[in-house]
Amino acid sequence: MKIYMSVDMEGATGVVRSEQTKASRDEYRFGQAMQTHDLKAAIEGALEGGAREILVNDSHDGMINISPADLSRYGGRVRIISGSPKTLGMMEGVECCDGAFFLCYHAMAGTERAILDHTISGKAVFGVRLNDKEVGEIGLNAAVCSEHSIPVLLVTGDTAACEEARSALGQEVLTCSVKRGIGHSSADCLPPDDTFEIIRKGAFEAAKSLKYGGTGKNEIPRGAFQMDISFHYTSQADSAATIPGTTRIDGRTVRIKGIGMDLMRRWAGSLISLGGSVAF
């Protein structure tokens, strides 16, 4: 049984401000340490629950936040995909696994009382709709899992991210809340010792369930898709709309259609990256 762990940073224990998630800032060391703290809790729980292998995908920003040296204690049972760009970004390598964990995740752009809410790029994206349903990174990444019939078993982050996961994936998905958002950059946070046990136990239950045949439900559709990406500025949409195959819906919004959620996720990453590169 092989578990996939996509690991972001904004939803990690104690992280509340953007400075803690940017490698250029002194505060980043704290965010990096807490991301690794939550990951280790999930790894230990998953191994206790029956996982034989774990594939970690560093999924935040430049995707070089987690040191492989911090995972050496697990004796080769844990591997890590590090660096960028990756074809599937936050979901690179998922197709070879049996179940997925989304760790340290955050809520979609525009969510109230959510820590550092955004969808892929805070400076570019106003919102994303997939098959006429508003989604964030949880929904976009779960769609890739759905395409490969891989259940999303566990989501960790703030309370808003956990609520979003249950709404998008179904009430059966296990969630672990490590903090409750007060505003965009403030939260009521649990201490690391507490969150380690919460995440470890959640990962144990998720892995144990998969081992004994309880794959859960993934309510994200697969197959054909229509994705509308709304940018903050018309200049960003102008740039994204230069790509062949896109349709301009309005001043802010670009639409792309296709078949296959792997392709959808690649389009999302590419269009948002292009739109976000524009000066405004």
Rank of each mutant, 00 (worst) to 15 (best):
V128K: 03
V128W: 01
L130S: 06
N131G: 08
D132C: 12
D132W: 14
K133G: 04
E134I: 14
V135C: 06
G136E: 02
G136N: 06
E137G: 15
E137I: 08
I138R: 00
G139H: 04
N141D: 11
A142V: 11
A143L: 07
C145N: 09
C145H: 01
C145L: 12
S146F: 00
S146G: 13
S149D: 15
S149W: 02
I150C: 09
P151R: 03
P151L: 02
P151C: 08
V152H: 03
V152T: 11
V152N: 07
L153M: 14
L153T: 03
L153D: 05
V155G: 03
T156P: 13
T156E: 09
G157D: 08
G157I: 05
G157W: 03
G157V: 03
T159R: 14
A160L: 09
A161K: 00
A161Y: 01
A161D: 05
C162I: 03
C162Q: 02
E163C: 07
E163I: 10
E164W: 03
E164T: 06
A165K: 04
A165E: 01
A165P: 15
R166S: 06
S167H: 10
S167W: 08
L169E: 03
Q171E: 14
E172H: 09
E172M: 09
T175K: 00
T175V: 13
T175C: 11
T175Q: 01
T175W: 01
C176W: 04
C176Y: 03
C176G: 06
S177V: 06
V178D: 11
V178H: 07
V178K: 04
K179Q: 08
R180V: 09
R180I: 00
G181S: 06
G181K: 02
I182F: 03
H184P: 13
H184R: 15
S185Q: 14
S185E: 15
S185V: 10
S185C: 13
S186Y: 04
A187H: 02
A187C: 06
A187I: 01
D188Q: 12
C189K: 06
C189W: 05
L190D: 10
L190Y: 09
P191G: 15
P192S: 05
P192M: 00
D193N: 11
D193W: 04
D194M: 13
T195M: 13
T195I: 12
T195S: 12
T195C: 15
T195A: 14
T195R: 09
T195L: 12
F196T: 10
E197D: 10
E197R: 14
I198G: 00
I199R: 04
R200L: 07
R200P: 12
K201C: 08
K201N: 08
K201D: 07
K201S: 12
K201R: 07
A203Q: 13
A203H: 01
F204S: 02
E205V: 15
E205G: 09
E205W: 10
A206Q: 01
A206D: 01
A207N: 09
K208N: 15
K208V: 04
S209R: 06
S209E: 00
L210P: 15
L210M: 14
K211A: 12
